[in-house]
Amino acid sequence: MNNNLFTKELKRNRKNLTIWSTITVGFTFMILSIYPFMQEMGQDLTVMMDKMPAELSKAMGMDSQTWSSILGFYSTYYGIYIIVLIGIFSTSTAATIISKEEKDGTSEFLLTKPLSRKSIFVSKLASLSILVLIIYLLQSIFAGIGMSLFNDMETDWSTLFVMHIHGLVLILFFSCIGVLISMFVKPKKNFMGMVVGIVFGSYFLDAIGKATEATNWISYISPFHYLSFSVNDPDFQVNYLSALVLLLIGAAMLVFSYTVYKKKDIGA
């Protein structure tokens, strides 16, 4: 671990982090601030929800019950917007934090310094973790503040907590995928399309899978399936097994990425 490199990476990504954090926090606040208006519509909304095709409401993970509380309302947006947004930021940062140096040719500068590849890899991942945790924590804190501001009932903090733990594991998992793909995709490529595809794609695979019995199997290939946000489920709690398995797979992807990076020819 090299401090000089670690701090430089944080500085280098600070602008990007600020932009994405602002968007994510802004979105969180917007969603929560809409809730009081939705609540006023009350009965009408329930009627409307019941008229929706069952497949669609299942795919979106909502029914007339869901929107009866601010937590339920927030949970339907948490997956599709918040986690996808943070996921895209984390995965794209993960995909570029090492490969950007190769793309810009600066890897020659970095790798001729008195640093081992291990130290470079570890320092960069340490910066990445901090960046990901900052955006995640900022969003969580503002979600908490928003809940307190716009909820006229008692907030169920422990359920919110469970949902956000699931979110964190998913974000970390996607970040590991980002690091892994950067080892195999030519660094000259723009990763953004691929990253959006993977994160959004995972969400939609899960959504399609949920819609009908026949498509259930599809959701098994999506990490979203294993860490759900269905807060109205009476058994809703942290799925430790899934979290552990996803984190282990993530760690394995990092170890594998490192073995690739260690033996990689840089530039030419």
């Binding site: 280098r12 810009d104 040719g105 600066t106 020659e108 500068f109 001729t112 310094k113 008195p114 640093l115």
Partner: peptide
């Protein structure tokens, strides 16, 4: 590498 100073033929910096 601590003992080496390297001047590349093509300079690519940040």
């Amino acid at each position: 590498r601590e003992k080496i100073g390297y001047l590349p033929s093509e300079v690519n910096y940040y």
